[in-house]
Nucleic acid binder design. Structure first.
Lengths: 132, 132
DNA sequence: GCTGGCGTTGCCGTCGGCGGCAAGGTTTAG
DNA sequence: CTAAACCTTGCCGCCGACGGCAACGCCAGC
């Protein structure tokens, strides 16, 4: 498979694929004429990269996942390194969430809007009849 | 007040202040020797810029607030333009929050963690004795 | 044999918000 | 008198993830 087809199938531009290669995330065989040649494994790698990037990972952060995949594992997340990165990312996202929540409330406050509704709990006293 | 003092009082570098000036957010009188000269109004402008930027506004987005302040208003948020920007920003932040929440859950899911606890409601059946 | 659509390398540009440096001028303290 | 601590302008660098262009090679169909 040449770079154009891989790009089409993975939903990324050839330019991006060359970029991944520059970073050492993607390795290409070469044909006699110098063209890059990819296989289905490479498609899986690119798919892994994209799904992680879509979740907010930096390209560098996808490296352990890619290496995990290339080491023969079924998923890129089944190695200790990748799981560690994943946990770090979760913590980062949680930090962002609390920060953004603070910002949101501050903004709403400046506009005179009510703060984010977090929990509405309406407690209704039960009908005593039911317990007779 | 020269640029160094304004920077110290506002908590920003002189370099940043010159940058704000390049963007037309900050205007400086000049002394005979060419030095920039600022007053208390300029300090208020810089404070406004900083507080907005800390809330996630881009420098360009602070422009209406700055102009509002310079138009003689007590606060930068009391003009229609700035309030519009502020509302847009609130909407953006809300979008981010929902997106990030989705990402968080996806991440936690991949790790086998439980999703974000949103509301814990423990309903305890009341003691029927109380209703006797 | 020629056009069109692939591919290649290499390198500059983008966005934002400055940092940092050079090469000067100015002012103040000792 | 001189050093230190300011100030000035101008310009390059940075981060990340590519986009886009030039200038070229390769291969298919007509």
């Amino acid at each position: 498979m040449r770079i154009g087809e891989l790009g089409r199938r993975a939903g990324v531009s050839p330019r991006a694929l060359r970029h991944y290669e520059e970073l050492g995330l993607l390795a290409a065989r070469r044909r006699a004429n110098g063209y890059r040649d990819y296989d289905e494994g490479d498609l899986r790698v690119v798919a892994e990269i994209r799904s992680l990037v879509d979740l907010g990972f930096a390209l560098e952060e996808t490296r352990p996942f890619v290496e995990c995949l290339r080491a023969g594992n079924a998923t890129g997340a089944s190695c200790p390194d990748s799981r560690a990165v994943q946990r770090r990312k979760l913590a980062e996202v949680d930090e962002w969430l609390t920060r953004l929540q603070t910002v949101r409330d501050e903004l709403a406050d400046r506009l005179g809007d009510p703060p984010t509704p977090r929990c509405f709990i309406t407690v209704v006293a039960p009908d005593p009849e039911e317990f007779r």
